[in-house]
Design a protein around this nucleic acid. Sequence first.
DNA 1: AAATGTAATGATAACCGTTATCATTATCGT
DNA 2: ACGATAATGATAACGGTTATCATTACATTT
Lengths: 137, 137
Amino acid sequence: MITVIITFMQKLTAQRQAILDLINASNRHWDADEVARALVDTGASIGIATVYRGLSALESQGLIDSIQLADKKRYERADKAHHDHMVCTGCGHIEEFSHDTIEALQEAAAEKKGFKLTGHQLVMFGFCRKCRQELDT
Amino acid sequence: MITVIITFMQKLTAQRQAILDLINASNRHWDADEVARALVDTGASIGIATVYRGLSALESQGLIDSIQLADKKRYERADKAHHDHMVCTGCGHIEEFSHDTIEALQEAAAEKKGFKLTGHQLVMFGFCRKCRQELDT
DNA sequence: AAATGTAATGATAACCGTTATCATTATCGT
DNA sequence: ACGATAATGATAACGGTTATCATTACATTT
């Protein structure tokens, strides 16, 4: 096997700093378009391509996290403990949760199949408390 | 809230039967393009749009299952017990596994947040036994 | 401070999986 | 067989994302 590893300096430019600040300022889960829109609204000048590149650069540096939903990727702050997500299919609300036992059992299940885990993603779908009530009316 | 439910007959046409037979004949996880290619290879005449429509029709009837990966959707036989997936990022191999305790804990975690679960998807990423060995060489 | 090398930017084209459109064909119940 | 309606297939369109490329910004060296 031939492995080539190319490394280069990642620059934390003004645009990337702005993206990082925006994401760090809340607990929201942002898609690329929302980030671009929010930054432009504050008067910043940033192209959509720069947002996409900035988001993946920041993620590869571990400065932000992401979850891959069916249609798009969403980014969130990285300075939180590991957690998974529940997505309300009614209103889009995303709730976070973490469960050490589930994590441990996943690791054990992988090991049993000979897998060396590098990551996982657990997304649960359903109706949040609010949407659940509206369904009953 | 206004809810409109429109129901109509779903026809099991020759094309859809061919898709169903193909998927039922193995344990593979097919994407739409692979299905179309495989059917055309057997001499069948089927358009890619028909494959997409057939796949979602069959899934909505519970005749096949699917998993949503980052880039595309993959379909598999439905006549298996519920299970989740481990995807090898080295070779693309998909391994299935099931774990009742994890399922139960998920349900409990959702309930604690007030969520009424409708489904979930757990995908674990890593290296399968074979790719793991190649990494060490 | 000027020059140099390199990564980032931004506008836009391209990409890829998927869905919509629409005229035509096939299917099912009667 | 007839009539109603769903399915088909070719292709356009869509939406999120990535590639292209000329230009700009940055850090390091002279």
